[in-house]
Design a protein around this nucleic acid. Structure first.
Lengths: 194, 194, 194, 194
DNA sequence: GATGAATGAGGATTCATTCAT
DNA sequence: TATGAATGAATCCTCATTCAT
C-alpha cells in the first residue's frame, strides 16, 4: 500500500533543498546528488517526483515566482485605499524585501535568469515574472497617466528594481532602504510633473 | 625557429569563439570541446594559451570589459566640451549601444554575471566593471552636485542601465532608443531640480 | 530496496582486479579503465566505492599488508612454544612465502614501494609495514639479547628479507628455499655467538 | 652549418635534468615537459637526441649504472693489496655511499627498479647491474671459499646491500655507518667460520 | 640545431539517469 | 514509495610526439 500524500511532502522538501543548494554551491554546483543529500533522500527520488533535474528546476523557479507574487499582492492589498504613490512603493518594497528576507534567493534567481536564455521552460517562466511585475506597475500608474505614459514609467521602475537587485546581488547584499529611497525619489519626481 | 606571433592570433581567436559559444549554447554548454571546434583548433590549445578553461573565461570577460570601457571613454571624449547632461547621456549610450553592435555579447555578459557569484576570479572582474561604471557617472554628476548627492544619482543611473540591459537580454534584444529615453528622462528630471 | 551487500562483493573484487592489473601492466598501466574492465564493471564504480583511484590504491595496499601480517601471525602462532630460532624462521618463512603463493603480488608490492615515495597515503602504509615487520623481529630477539642488540639483528634480518625479495622480484621469482637458507645461516651464526 | 659537439653537451645535460626531475616530482611526475624545462631547452630536443622519452630514461639508467661501477672499481682499486674483508667492505661502502653522496639518486633507482618490470630495455639494464654487483662480490669471496659457497655469501651480501638501501630510501635517508656495520658484522661472522 | 605551436590519444572524474530490489 | 547500485556519456586536462619554421 503506497503512502498517501507523499508528493505534498517530498516536493516542497526538494524545492527547498534546491534553493539552498544553489545558494551554497552555485547553479552548476547544485547537482542532483547534492540536492538529494541536502533533502536527506535518494537521488532517484528527483526523477520519481519531477521526471528529472530539469523538472525540479522548473518547479523551483515556479515556486519562487509564486511566493514572490504572493508577497507582492499582500503588500498591495494593504495599500488598497492608499494613493498612487503608496501603491507603487508597496510593489517596490515587495520586490526588494524579497531578497532581504531570504538572501539565498538572490543567487538562485540569478542562476535561473542566466539559464532562462537557453532553456525554453525557464525562459517562459522568466517572461511570466517579468511581464507580471510590469503589469502590476502599469495598473498602478494608469490611475494617473494615459496608457502609453503609464507603460513608460512602469518599465523604468521595473528596470530600476531589477538593476538594483542585480547590483545588490554582486555587492553581497542589498541596502534595501537606500535602494527603495532611490526608486521613491524617481516616482516622486515623475508624479510631481505637470 | 617556431612560428612566431601565434599568441597574438590564437588568443583573440579563442576569446571570440568563447563569446560565440556562450551565446549559442549557454554558459554550461560552452565546453572546451565546443569552443575549440568553433575556433577550428584542438582543445589542448586552450591549455597551451590560457592554462585551462578558467583562464580562457577570465580572459574573455576581461576582453569584454576592456572593449566596453574603450567605447565608453571614446564616447565621453566626444562630449568633453559638452554640458553635464550630454556627458551623462554619452555614458548611457555607450552602455546600451554595447548590446546593439554585438547582440551575442548580451548573453555572454549574463552568463558571466551569474558565474561571478561562484568564481572568485570572475567576481573580481565583475566588481571592477561595476565600480568603474559607477565611478564614471559620479565624476560627471560631481560637476553639479555635492559628493553624496552625486553618488546617489550615479547609483540610480547605473542601476537603470543594468536593469534595462537585463530586461532587454530577456526580451531578445533591447529597444535601445526607448531605454535611453527613459534614462534621459530621469536625468533631466534630476537636473531640473532646484 | 536496493541490492544489499554489494560493497562486500565489489570492494574485494576491485582490489583483486587492481593487483592483477598492476602485475600485468605495471603501476602506470593500471588505469581505472583497465582495472574496471578486468573487474567487469564500469569505471565510475571505483569512485562510487573508493572515492577515486587513490582510494582504491590505498585500499589495495592496505589489503596486501593485512593479508601479509595475517600469514605472519599464524606462522608465529604455530611456533609459540618453539625456541627463538624457530620463531625467527617463522617470520622469515612468512615474509618469503608470501611471494610464492601469489607471484603477481611481488610486482604489485614493488609498484607500491616506488609510489610510496611520492604519495603520502601510500608512504604511511609502507612505513607501517616496515616498522611492524621490524617490531615482530625485535620481540623475538629480545628473548635472548638486550634491546639495542636485538634491534640491530632485527634490522639486519629485515633488510635481508626485503633485499632477497627485491632481487627475487627481478629474477622473475624467488628461490624461496635458497633465500630462507641464507637468512637461516645468518641467524644461526648470530645465535651461536657467545 | 650545424654546431658540432652538441650531442656531448646536450645529452649529459638532459640526463642530469632527468635525475633531478625524478627526485623532485617522482617517476610519474617526470614528464618531458618538466625535464626539458629543468634543462632549459625545448621538449622537442628530447626526441631529437634520444628518439623519445623511453630512450632518455634508458640512457639515464645506463648513466647511473656506469657511474656506480666507476665508484665501485675505484674503491676496489684502493684495496687491491688488502685482505678479503677489506675488499668486501670496499664494495659495501661503494654501494651504500652512492646514495649518500647523491641522495636524489635513491628515488631514481627505485623508480627504475619498478619500471624495469614492464619495460624490457630497463629490465635488461637492471639485470646487468644486479649480476655485475653479485659478480664483483663473488670474485672477492673466491679468494677464500669454493665457488658455490662464495656465491652463497655474495648473494647474501648483495641482498643485504639492496635491502638496507631499500629500507633507507623509505626512511628518508640511510644511516650509512649503521648499515655498513651490520654488513660488516655478517661478513666477519662468515669469515671467522672454520 | 632548436623552437614553440599544435595535436590525438588517453587520463581520472562527474553527472543525470536507470534499474533491480 | 524509496533505495543505492550501476552506468555511459561527457567533462577538463595531460602528455609524448610531430611539424613548420
Amino acid at each position: 500500500m503506497p503512502k498517501v500524500g507523499m508528493p505534498e511532502i517530498r516536493k516542497p522538501q526538494l524545492i527547498e533543498a534546491t534553493i539552498t543548494a544553489i545558494d551554497k554551491h552555485g547553479f552548476p554546483g547544485a547537482t542532483v546528488s547534492v540536492i538529494s543529500k541536502k533533502a536527506g533522500v535518494s537521488p532517484a527520488i528527483i526523477n520519481h517526483y519531477f521526471g528529472g533535474k530539469d523538472g525540479l528546476l522548473e518547479a523551483t523557479m515556479r515556486s519562487l515566482i509564486k511566493e514572490f507574487f504572493e508577497v507582492l499582492h499582500s503588500e498591495l492589498y494593504l495599500t488598497r485605499d492608499g494613493d498612487i504613490f503608496e501603491k507603487a512603493m508597496a510593489i517596490v518594497r515587495a520586490s526588494i524585501s524579497q531578497s532581504q528576507t531570504r538572501p539565498q534567493v538572490v543567487k538562485t534567481w540569478m542562476g535561473f535568469w542566466a539559464s532562462a536564455m537557453h532553456k525554453p521552460a525557464l525562459y517562459r517562466l522568466q517572461k511570466v515574472y517579468s511581464r507580471r511585475l510590469l503589469s502590476c506597475l502599469v495598473v498602478v500608474f494608469r490611475e494617473r497617466f494615459e496608457k502609453e505614459r503609464a507603460r513608460e514609467i512602469a518599465f523604468t521602475v521595473a528596470a530600476m528594481i531589477d538593476g538594483m537587485w542585480l547590483r545588490g546581488s554582486l555587492a553581497g547584499g542589498i541596502d534595501n532602504q537606500h535602494a527603495a529611497d532611490r526608486i521613491n525619489e524617481y516616482i516622486s519626481l515623475v508624479l510631481k510633473q505637470p
